[in-house]
């Protein structure tokens, strides 16, 4: 197997993008999986796609459009679902279809070639520039930094938001902060993975990690490992079989999830040590 391709700058950029995007998406995915809110993420990623196309059509930076529209989707779906005024499935159904409709409308209105739009649809990690990588690096550092800094508030909010509120943690601020980071992560990885596929890279690595551990810290770590692994293996498969990289990355992440499901220890009855914890190391 000739692996000299990995010596080229564009491939190294792609590997670095997969590394950073894999960590950011998987970290966000842990919230998405544990808060049972994949519906919000799907809505936001399609909104980001529509926003980017709006930018392409009107001639401003597509990433600004992507970020703006994904936050707008979160701002609409979040409170509606939060207050229980609308079933989340109903609100996501409306937003999801509206965003796809807008995306294809903007694509139709766009003059000239549609190749830029199609790249946003299924991603083009191999054409990532230095600017794309810097944006991804900034978002990844912020996402990981926020998790590290506010771990206890995030853990409490993930476990039970009402309980977190009742002990004096501003859990609603934490939740909307997480949605904001979700928008930023989707925007930063949109060009690499594509608007239609990105949500799989958020959901699958975290869902796989969820099958394998009862420790939240380990779940964050495993999800990040699976996210990076999906990106790198996906890139390798894309090169070997000459097929689109966004698709191979997402399919690899789905395979990782299926493997985790098959080997999940959570399917088995486990006997837990019934003794107090003494002098255990924490944090």
């Amino acid at each position: 197997m000739d692996l000299s391709i990995f010596g080229y700058q564009f491939m190294q950029n792609a590997l670095l993008s997969a590394f950073l995007g894999g960590i950011a998406c998987a970290t966000i995915g842990v919230f998405v999986v544990l808060k049972h809110m994949p519906f919000i993420g799907v809505g936001m990623s399609h909104a980001a796609f529509a926003g980017a196309l709006l930018g392409l059509w009107l001639g401003f930076n597509p990433l600004i459009g992507a970020f703006g529209l994904s936050l707008l989707a979160a701002a609409i779906i979040g409170p509606l679902a939060d207050r229980g005024q609308l079933n989340p499935e109903t609100s996501i159904g409306v937003i999801y279809s509206l965003m796809l409709g807008l995306a294809f409308l903007f694509m139709g209105l766009m003059p000239g070639t549609k190749s830029g739009a199609l790249e946003l649809l299924w991603g083009s990690i191999l054409t990532n520039t230095r600017g794309d990588i810097i944006l991804l690096a900034v978002v990844t550092v912020v996402v990981v930094g926020v998790v590290f800094t506010f771990y206890k508030e995030i853990q409490a909010t993930i476990f039970n938001r009402d309980m977190a509120l009742s002990v004096g943690i501003p859990a609603t601020v934490i939740l909307y902060g997480i949605l904001f980071l979700t928008g930023a992560t989707i925007t930063a990885t949109l060009r690499s993975i594509g608007g239609l596929l990105i949500f799989s890279l958020i959901l699958n690595p975290a869902a796989a990690a969820y099958q394998l551990t009862y420790s939240l810290k380990r779940m964050f770590l495993l999800a990040a490992v699976f996210g990076v692994l999906s990106g790198w293996v996906g890139l390798l498969l894309s090169y070997l079989f000459d097929i689109p990289s966004g698709a191979t990355i997402v399919i690899t992440s789905s395979a990782v999830f299926l493997l985790a499901l098959v080997f999940s220890p959570k399917k088995k009855v486990k006997s837990w040590p019934e003794k107090p914890v003494v002098d255990e190391q924490h944090h």
């Binding site: 544990l34 206890k152 508030e153 853990q155 409490a156 993930i158 476990f159 309980m163 977190a164 002990v167 004096g168 943690i169 969820y210 551990t213 009862y214 420790s215 939240l216 380990r218 779940m219 914890v277």
Partner: peptide, 14 residues
């Protein structure tokens, strides 16, 4: 992925 001891600790987070 949260154990009993961690849940009780949430009481001190505020």
């Amino acid at each position: 992925p949260v154990n009993v001891r961690e849940v009780v600790m949430i009481g001190r987070y505020g």
